[in-house]
């Protein structure tokens, strides 16, 4: 037991070193910022918040291409809200909240599929029930055991309070998500484009479906510190929808949505610091602004291009 504890302590040390190295890497471009742009990053909490924003914005952005193409927006919202009772129970049992959140989020996504398959209730109604029911259960439990500040942090994120443990968990989740997408992107492409042909060539579409769902759940759970339960779905939908308006191929779409995710999170962090505004909300507003820009200015599908075509 003592050896295990020592090993875990060593792992935590190593993880801390990796996080510090990543932060140092991020400080290189920050140092190039003109004027007093770099000033806010003299604080340790802002450096950690920046790393968290880059990782969360990037992974959410990467997955958001598939969320948009698979029409999983409401599913993402369901999972994120249904995470709350898991967080509460983990708090009660003194477990890492990531574990409780992952379990209850995954249970909710499985329950949606179960209700849809075995009853006449359709998918959207099943998601509405689990979203609200799960969220309500979490609210009631947390109301009994924790302070209002605690609840606010869970619901709306607390990126300025992100610690090393949380960063390490996010990093591991990011690596899992990126590896999953890189390994299965061609299978996922065929599965989302033409699921019957995917089954025809012997792909295990059921496993692929649930694996993508679990990776999505993991991403949502580690994003809670940064954007919170209520707004995380925006980071999973808006970057992908923005890229969808701009791109005709999946590869570029994934690259653009990842970029929009990172830019939204980082710009949102900086703006929220400058304006003393809620960080999660500001990030989502920046993402929404990117979407509006694409909606108006996109070269082929934008409003201006469409008006020009109709006029010409």
């Amino acid at each position: 037991m003592a050896e295990l504890a020592a090993l875990m302590a060593q792992g935590a040390q190593g993880g801390r070193a990796v996080i510090d190295a990543l932060i140092a890497l991020l400080m290189l471009p920050v140092a190039l910022l003109p004027g007093d742009g770099a000033a806010m990053f003299q604080y340790g909490f802002m450096r950690r918040a920046l790393l968290s924003s880059v990782m969360v914005g990037g992974v959410c952005g990467l997955l958001s291409s598939f969320v948009v193409l698979k029409r999983w927006s409401l599913l993402g919202d369901t999972i994120s809200h249904a995470v709350l009772p898991g967080v509460a129970v983990a708090y009660l049992l003194n477990l890492p909240f990531v574990i409780g959140a992952f379990v209850s989020g995954a249970l909710a996504s499985l329950a949606v599929g179960f209700i849809e398959r075995t009853t006449r209730v359709k998918e959207d109604a099943a998601m509405g029930i689990l979203l609200s029911g799960g969220f309500a259960l979490g609210l009631v439990i947390i109301g009994q055991i924790a302070s209002a500040t605690h609840l606010t942090h869970i619901l709306f994120g607390n990126v300025l309070g992100v610690g090393y443990d949380s960063l390490l968990t996010t990093l591991i989740a990011a690596i899992v998500a990126i590896a999953f997408v890189a390994r299965f992107v061609k299978e996922l492409t065929l599965y989302t484009f033409d699921p019957v042909q995917a089954a025809t060539i012997g792909l295990d579409t059921g496993t692929l479906h649930y694996a993508l769902m679990l990776v999505l759940t993991l991403t949502i759970v580690v994003s809670l510190d940064t954007v919170g339960i209520v707004l995380v779905v925006a980071m999973l939908v808006t970057p992908g929808a923005t890229a969808y308006l701009l791109c005709d191929r999946l590869g570029p779409m994934m690259a653009v949505s990842t970029g929009v995710g990172v830019a939204s999170a980082v710009l949102g962090l900086v703006l929220s610091y400058r304006l003393d505004a809620a960080s999660g909300g500001t990030m989502v507003l920046v993402a929404t602004a990117f979407f509006l820009l694409a909606l108006i200015l996109a070269p082929e599908r934008g409003l201006i291009a469409r008006m020009r075509r109709h006029a010409g």
Partner: peptide, 19 residues
């Protein structure tokens, strides 16, 4: 890979970003 399938027109989302 011995079986290939070609779907009906309506079964596909033609807005999917592929060339």
């Amino acid at each position: 890979g011995e079986i290939a399938y070609m779907p009906q027109h309506e079964a596909i989302d033609w807005d999917y970003p592929l060339t």
